[in-house]
Amino acid sequence: MSDGYASRMPTPEAAARPWQTHTVAIRDVRREVEGVSTYDLAFLDDTVREAYRFAPGQFNMLYLPGAGEIAISVSDDPRNTEAYGHTIRVAGNVTRTLAGLGVGETLGLRGPFGTSWPLSECIGRDVVIVCGGIGLAPLRPAICTLLQDRQQFGRLNLLYGARSSDTLLFEREYDDWSRQGMDVQTTVDRSSPGWLGNVGVVTLLLDQLPSFDPHNTVLMCCGPEVMMKFTVMAALNSGLSEQQIWVSMERNMQCAVGLCGHCQLGPTFICKDGPVFRYDKIAPFIDVEGL
């Protein structure tokens, strides 16, 4: 089946000039939850803007002079071509510096890099998306794409876990996603007064999922690695095979083109061969201590 949605390789521009950083301006900043904001970044160069395309799951390298460079997945609807949302949690020097910037200020961007979610393989099949914490951000472009072509797919389920109800990402969009045909279930590790939703880890939601055909399902997963490991175990117990499961891995990505080796996992480089992997491709390396 041809991939009608996206290439799973960097765009020709990024592949040809992986080191070329383009200047982008911050068009908008939206606070999502405490410590997490979405930055809409727009290319200043019209030619670059017109040529740039990303596939759901791919990432960009964001460069802040004097602070450093960091890999961030695009969290926007791929149909948006004017500016690209990057949902970022303040976690270190670069993101702290970024958090100090406002609308109109500029930074560098190179990309997109890496593999994408297998949306073409989802056609005609049920899709289960399992994610936790900020792991919903790299899956948001895939959700937008699935809902845009809703009739192409079977049952769509989103199972999302967060630490608490006030850290649920993109909560304002859940109703829209539900209306468009996705069953959205959330759960939190810690309940708070007034919370009437689910409590418990997200893997339990997978066990409780009433309506999906394990033999005709694609499962996409993104979140802390331990969470993904137990999600995969639950999925395999439900009857899915390793070939039906896709995970987004992350390591210390620095060059984004598989040269520096910082993100090596066994024989693969997360930046170049991932971040999205079919599970059977990386299963032998997941439980290896120190990798």
């Binding site: 410590g35 960091i70 890999a71 961030i72 997945s73 970022i88 949690r89 976690a91 270190g92 993101t95 936790g132 914490g133 900020i134 792991g135 951000a137 790299p138 876990g161 967060a162 630490r163 850290t167 590790d189 810690r190 418990g200 880890v201 893997t203 993104c222 979140g223 802390p224 690695e225 331990v226 969470m227 137990f230 987004s248 891995m249 992350e250 390591r251 210390n252 990505m253």
Partner: peptide, 18 residues
């Protein structure tokens, strides 16, 4: 898994953003 507090603000535990 709940005890591990995987979604806490420990940078090394957030794989989707290094």
């Amino acid at each position: 898994l709940q005890l591990l507090d995987l979604f806490a603000d420990a940078p090394s535990l957030i794989p989707t953003q290094q």
